[in-house]
Design a binder for these strands. Structure first.
Lengths: 275, 275
DNA sequence: AAGATGTAAGTAAGTACTTACTTTTGAGCG
DNA sequence: CGCTCAAAAGTAAGTACTTACTTACATCTT
């Protein structure tokens, strides 16, 4: 059910043939408000976004927002929670299957390559997956940066549930390959930091600083960037750098895990008093 | 001069050795307001900081702020301009020497090592310099991130005058060493991105996400981090990885996985106001 | 006295959030 | 089908408070 994620986000200046505000049921409206608010929050941050703007962008009156979310803060938290924390709190945006933390996707993506000890495939796939995710969903990184800067409490949750786990995951792989003699003796987390630093910095630069693709100082496709980052990292930590490309006899590809339809959370209307 | 940045925030009865901080000349006051405002802007962003808060933190009435800066926006711009753009606009904070762009410091810092083609020294020095700057002045990175997210017009200036130039500077060095046969044939900017990505991501993570030094997943001194990042990058792009340390006879070939803990407390003394 | 440094007390336009009220929906029932 | 009717979806117009910025006036230094 309810697949209309953000197709109805009321394009600001698009001509609307039907001025009818198209009455929605609660779950639809809640989802639509969240989608619109997410865009605005990611653009201007929590304090920079007003409930009035959200209401206008959603094409409803302000009171509607407060019927669906007790406070602006609750709306923000619901979005963060859904977007980055895999539904850590129960108050996530309803009507949408709980998406697994990003880390699980990555785990499945590189399982085969890891088993085959195809180092290049492992790191290239992770890099490419992250780069594509950041490019397809620019709201994600912006929201994350705002959360970190604004010291939102869910920032710690996101770090622990996603990034920290990813560090341990990749660090564990490096450690294993060190034991097998393939990598030299460096701190595994130094390698992970170099790798994730390259990837995340690349996305962040393209998103926030070097925005114009035509003027970019480092102009590559995601696939190309992923390959270069992975290659530099691997040569950097390899015991025998010339062996990096040796493994590439065949490319093991694995189909993406399908996600299952999920239970939804009802429109809970607890008017909890804040402050 | 002007050390009285926040020691005079309304302590009427406190014994003041100097004839109180009551009255300042315009330049002092302007500078003090800017310093206080910079701290607040870096903590909460432009929209999240109110002029009332700035006035209170500076120990003056709100009207004083608007005597020295026509608008809140002008105050913000003056700070950014002074802090990150080396006085691009003329309206920079007065009474302070125009500090040269960060890039010039770096140029001077590695000139000798570059001439000697001591690759490790070059990249290690740059990394260490940046890491220490970020640690000593946490306001800098936070302000930059806010500027980028909030799409402030001076963000582009900062990028062009500092980061882009740094990219070209390091990229040029890599290209030269490629011509000399020392580095393999990769896109020089890929190397710079990996390198700066590691360094900046490291600072950003420590500042925004993995804040507690005791809980950090990658716990190293700045010097150690700089060495590891430089080493991984150089082995990653070297034509002959075993030659990396050749120039430095005393450099340890085998890295010691130090997890001893006590060594990384350099100057964390200033972190006193955490929530 | 001049001129700069300072303040208390505004103002108009927001801000998040509420209240009182109207319209739409859809099931139950004759 | 047409009718009622309660619950849900919606709105206009508030409320109490904050915001950036001003005005009128006082105080210090030379």
């Amino acid at each position: 059910m309810t697949r209309h994620l953000e197709n109805d986000t009321a394009a600001p200046d698009a001509p609307q043939p039907t001025p009818t505000a198209a009455r929605m049921c609660a779950d639809e409206r809640r989802l639509q408000i969240a989608a619109v608010a997410m865009r605005l929050f990611s653009e201007r941050g929590f304090r920079g976004t007003t409930t009035k703007e959200i209401a206008q962008a959603a094409g409803v009156s302000e009171a509607i927002i407060f019927r669906h979310f007790a406070t602006k803060e609750e709306l923000y938290t619901a979005i963060i929670d859904y977007k980055g924390c895999g539904g850590a709190a129960q108050s996530s945006v309803a009507g949408r299957p709980e998406q697994p933390p990003v880390i699980d996707e990555i785990r499945g993506l590189v399982a085969d390559a890891m088993e085959a000890s195809d180092d290049l495939a492992v790191f290239q796939a992770v890099a490419r997956h992250m780069l594509e995710h950041h490019e397809e969903d620019p709201e994600f990184l912006r929201l994350l940066m705002y959360i970190a800067l604004e010291n939102h409490s869910l920032g710690q949750v996101f770090w622990d549930k996603n990034v920290r786990v990813l560090y341990e995951f990749l660090g564990g792989y490096i450690r294993r390959r060190q034991r097998e003699g393939a990598f030299r003796d460096v701190d595994p987390y130094a390698g992970v930091r170099v790798f994730l630093g390259s990837v995340i910095h690349h996305s962040l630069v393209n998103l926030l600083w070097d925005k114009d693709p035509a003027r970019r100082i480092f102009r590559v496709t995601n696939e190309e960037a992923a390959r270069q980052f992975a290659e530099i990292l691997l040569r950097g930590i390899a015991a025998d750098p010339d062996s990096i490309n040796a493994k590439r006899a065949e490319a093991p590809k694995r189909t993406t895990r399908n996600r299952e339809g999920g239970a939804d959370v009802k429109n809970h209307r607890d008017k909890n008093k804040k402050r």
